[in-house]
């Protein structure tokens, strides 16, 4: 196997991993019990998924310029994603939406 093919396989595996994380994130956002846990799932995997996918893309990009552009996108995603989650969570907290804790749930039952 030459270098290009190896890189191609590596990229495919990385992207599959990324896709898996994103899928799990979506599942979590659907299945988790309350707002904060849902957001937690979505936010974590929204950072993890793109890391793998974009690194995979960088491996198969044809020129250095494209790889640098993809890397820049990755950096911006890593900065903005968690910030957005943080803003969302504090807005929700400010609006009076209390996190559902385990003992709360037992009380409810």
């Amino acid at each position: 196997m030459d270098v290009a093919t190896t890189l191609g396989w590596l990229a495919a595996i990385l992207m599959l991993i990324g896709a898996f994380f994103t899928f799990v994130g979506g599942l979590g956002a659907l299945r988790m019990p309350d707002f904060y846990t849902r957001m937690h799932a979505a936010s974590l995997t929204d950072s993890a998924g793109p890391i793998f996918i974009l690194i995979g893309l960088m491996l198969i990009s044809e020129t250095w310029l494209v790889a640098i552009k993809v890397f820049t996108i990755l950096v911006f995603l890593l900065i903005t994603g968690p910030t957005a989650s943080n803003a969302l969570a504090s807005a929700s907290l400010l609006a009076g939406n209390k996190p559902g804790l385990a003992n709360d749930q037992s009380e409810a039952e």
């Binding site: 911006f76 903005t80 910030t83 943080n86 803003a87």
Partner: peptide
């Protein structure tokens, strides 16, 4: 968003870009 520290800092950093 003055009382939101993190969004403010990150946002200010992003504006020039």
């Amino acid at each position: 968003l003055r009382h939101y520290l993190i969004p403010r800092l990150v946002g200010r950093m992003l504006i020039p870009f």
